[in-house]
């Protein structure tokens, strides 16, 4: 298969970027999108042009490293990560526009590589259960209904790729934060810190400069882990309760 790529090139965080056009020739249709980029890069190296930098690692859809916006859609057409996108989903001769994830809190490092450290900062502010290694009670000491465990698992499947914020017209990180707040808040082990967690994670999210949720649900449409936006409602609820408690001075 043959394609024309319009790729965003940017030398560094401070420099201006531009689109460059490269041909992608003789691409097997079983190749993944990233393998197609590998082949184009080999070509570029042969011509003495620096290869296009893009983030990738596990290439099996779980690590959340890959992060391309393809034809305006984070991770491209279909459900799943960029690394799980195969060239047979494209038409012969198509022009494919490849951009980095765009959002103020995700500064571009180079070409298609962005810094998603803001997500780590949010988790560090409260996205955990405080617990000391070796101090845990027996794993079966607290039964957790299967339905709750399953729902928590749905929320916990977030791979932290950032597509939600990249797809959101407001660059909101609500789906990411909502998933973590829900995952931990649903489990009995996470309840003691529920209010503190919701407050600090939302504050950390605000400070990072993410936009606000307008309930557009673009996040849900692109999420490779199929995290539903109902976890955003759950975050809204938990935050309102926690903030109200804090406002009246109730114990958090």
């Amino acid at each position: 298969m043959n394609f024309t790529l319009r790729v965003w090139r940017q030398d560094g965080p401070e420099t201006a970027g531009r689109f460059e056009e490269y041909p992608a020739r003789n691409i097997p249709d079983e190749a993944s999108f990233l393998e197609m980029l590998d082949l184009v890069n080999e070509d570029l190296i042969g011509k003495g042009i620096e290869p296009v930098e893009f983030d990738h690692d596990c290439r099996e859809g779980i690590c959340g490293t890959c992060s391309l916006t393809i034809d305006g859609v984070p991770h491209g057409p279909g459900r799943g990560t960029t690394c799980q996108l195969y060239m047979r989903s494209f038409r012969e001769g198509e022009v494919i526009v490849i951009e980095p994830f765009r959002a103020t809190p995700f500064p571009i490092l180079r070409d298609l590589t962005v810094d998603r450290g803001a997500f780590d900062t949010i988790i560090q502010s409260g996205g955990f259960i405080s617990e000391r290694s070796g101090s845990a009670p027996d794993a079966n000491a607290v039964p957790i209904p299967k339905t709750i465990a399953d729902l928590a698992m749905d929320a916990a499947s977030c791979i932290g790729c950032g597509a939600c914020a990249a797809a959101c017209p407001n660059s909101s990180a609500m789906l990411f934060v909502g998933a973590k707040v829900s995952h931990l808040g649903l489990l009995p082990q996470g309840k003691p810190e529920k209010n503190r967690r919701a407050l600090s994670m939302v504050r950390s999210m605000d400070e990072a400069g993410f936009g606000n949720c307008s309930n557009y649900y673009a996040c849900e449409a692109v999420c490779p882990a199929s995290i539903p936006a109902s976890f955003i409602a759950s975050l809204n609820r938990q935050y309102a309760v926690a903030a109200a408690k804090e406002t009246v001075g109730a114990t958090l």
Binding site: P169, S172, Y217
Partner: peptide
């Protein structure tokens, strides 16, 4: 205003997705 600040550069290709 905040949303504008969070998305200074729009994508070259507009894809409305689910909205």
């Amino acid at each position: 205003k905040e949303n504008q600040a969070a998305t200074p550069q729009k994508y070259a290709v507009k894809a409305p997705m689910k909205t």
